[in-house]
Structures are given as structure tokens and as C-alpha cells.
């Protein structure tokens, strides 16, 4: 592997100062499950790894039924799915954290890293998008927040500017009668990268017959994970029906711009967008229905 220096940063300002100083030759190390492999295989050149796991803010995992979730950028998957409050409030996010890698990967990898790695196929990003998550970013000029759907800009590229780092992710508290769901298609049952991923969040009326609003997001069908805006809008204020769901699935297929690679063909991916969007929507609806009245 290439040579690099390792720094264990203790505060956000220390990490930000270092990032600002070293520029793009420095990378943040959290779970390391992508970064270490990329450095080893020469896919990313770097001179500095800045370990942020000793910084308190990036390890925060706190949920409040009014204000929602604060998820530190370095919190690993296993802590997320071990948290009952998170499991109860954000099942769609939990769906993603339990399928990333295997158990050993989940011991290190986290949602923040998944976001910063900015893979088009990232499993955690569609759930963040459908859950209206915002990204809390610290930089030389202080903190700013951006919507999760704007965080990734291209494969491996993010909206982070020079000297900036992701500190945490905020997710609003779920509305009444709302649920989220994420699933992906992979040829095996674990340990694969999504051929296509689809997330959905849905808000139903009191009677659980009518969709008040929906959000749909997709992975692995474009250079970044996508918010399917038109497909989501199509479902607003509609009776639950196969027709409505099929229309949304069709609209989601329309925005997919997949490529063919070793993980799947473009035709296969476009086809799967329809299948998975339907399954994600039905999954989220079923979850609302399964909730005690």
C-alpha cells in the first residue's frame, strides 16, 4: 500500500484545520471499510488519514420523538440497528444498515461513511433521502446543513468543499402513520453490492387507505443515488391501489439512467427499478398497516 500519515483527531476543529491544510491529499477515516481498500488498491491516493472516531460529536446517536435523530458520522451500523428507538422510528434506514457487507463489516462501517464514499450503489443513501435527512457539515467557515439528496454529486464525489467534513446526519421525527422501507436486488443473499436499490417512505391517512405523501429514492441507476421526485409526487393524495403504485414505479423507471457493468446490465437495472419500487412502496405501506392503531 502507498505510504501515508495517520492522525487521530480529537475535535471537529482539529480535523477541519487538518483537512483545510492538507487539501485533497487528506481523507477522513471512520469505519475504513471503503477507504482502506481504496488506498490499498491504489484507487485513491492520499498522504494523510485523519481518524475522527475520537471526536465526541461524530459518535452521537440520539433520538427525540419531537426533534428526531442525530446520527454521528462515525456511528457504525451495528449500533444503529441495536437501538430500539431507531428501529422503531426509521425501519427503512435499519433495512439498509443490516444488509451492508457482512456482520464484520457492520462492526465498522457506518451511514456517514456510506454517504461520504458517495457510491451510486450506496444502500444507506436512498433511505436517508426518503426520510428527509439533512447532512451537518463542519468547515473552516463554521457549520452548514444540506439535504441528503444533494450530498453526492458524482461517483465518489460529494458536496463537501475543501476543509469540510460530515459531522452528523439529522432525520426528522416520523409523522403519524408513516413508515419507510428499503430493499435492494443482489444475486446472492448477502455480501453483494446493490444491482438496484429502492427506498420508500410513505405517510397514510388515519384510515390507512389513502396516501398523503410518499418519497421514493433509488440506488445504482445513475451517477448518484436519486430522489424520484415525479414518482413520489404521483402518489400524493391517492387511494392505495396497484394502479397508483404501478404509475409511480413507471415514473421511477423513467428517471433511471443505468449503465451496464459486471454487477448488472442497463436493461436489467431499468426493469428492476420497477420491481423494487413497487416492493418498497408496498413494504412501507404494509408497515404502516401493521402498526397498532
Amino acid at each position: 500500500m502507498q505510504e501515508f500519515e495517520y492522525i487521530n483527531a480529537k475535535t471537529v476543529s482539529e480535523a477541519v484545520t487538518l483537512l483545510d491544510e492538507k487539501g485533497d491529499k487528506a481523507r477522513i477515516l471512520a469505519g475504513g471499510t471503503d477507504l482502506i481498500v481504496q488506498a490499498r488498491e491504489g484507487r485513491r491516493t492520499l498522504d494523510w488519514m485523519i481518524d475522527i472516531k475520537s471526536i465526541p460529536e461524530v459518535n452521537e446517536l440520539s433520538y427525540d420523538s419531537n426533534t428526531g435523530l442525530t446520527l454521528g458520522a462515525a456511528v457504525p451500523c451495528y449500533q444503529i440497528y441495536a437501538d430500539d428507538a431507531v428501529c422503531n422510528a426509521y425501519p427503512g434506514l435499519v433495512d439498509a444498515t443490516i444488509i451492508i457487507g457482512g456482520t464484520a463489516i457492520q462492526g465498522r462501517a457506518g451511514v456517514g461513511g456510506n454517504l461520504c464514499n458517495a457510491s451510486p450503489a450506496a444502500d444507506c443513501i436512498p433511505p436517508l433521502i426518503v426520510l428527509n435527512a439533512t447532512c451537518v457539515i463542519a468547515g473552516p467557515n463554521g457549520e452548514r446543513e444540506i439535504p441528503s439528496e444533494d450530498f453526492c454529486t458524482a461517483p465518489g464525489q460529494t458536496a463537501l468543499e475543501k476543509g469540510e467534513m460530515l459531522v452528523s446526519i439529522k432525520i426528522p421525527a416520523p409523522q403519524q402513520n408513516s413508515r419507510s422501507y428499503y430493499l435492494r436486488f443482489i444475486p446472492r443473499n448477502e455480501m453483494d453490492i446493490a444491482v438496484v436499490g429502492a427506498g420508500a417512505a410513505i405517510v397514510l391517512d388515519e384510515a390507512k387507505q389513502r396516501i398523503i405523501s410518499a418519497r421514493i429514492a433509488l440506488a445504482a441507476v445513475a451517477p448518484t443515488p436519486l430522489y424520484a421526485e415525479e414518482a413520489s409526487a404521483l402518489l400524493a393524495d391517492r387511494e392505495i391501489s396497484d394502479t397508483a403504485i404501478d404509475e409511480a414505479a413507471q415514473a421511477a423507471q423513467n428517471i433511471a439512467r443505468p449503465i451496464s457493468d459486471m454487477r448488472g446490465t442497463a436493461e436489467q437495472r431499468t426493469h428492476l427499478v420497477g420491481v423494487l419500487t413497487r416492493r418498497a412502496l408496498n413494504g412501507a405501506i404494509q408497515r404502516v398497516k401493521d402498526d397498532a392503531a
Binding site: L29, T33, I36, V37, D51, A104, I105, G107, R108
Partner: peptide, 17 residues
């Protein structure tokens, strides 16, 4: 590592201090 299963190929030696 600290009670948690990990792949030791994906942890830096310096991280276990």
C-alpha cells in the same frame, strides 16, 4: 475488536491503540 467482530484487514494497526 473491543467486543465487536471486525475484518482485521480493514482495520489499521495504529487504530487499535
Amino acid at each position: 475488536l473491543d467486543g465487536r467482530l471486525v475484518n482485521s484487514c480493514l482495520v489499521l494497526g495504529v487504530e487499535i491503540d
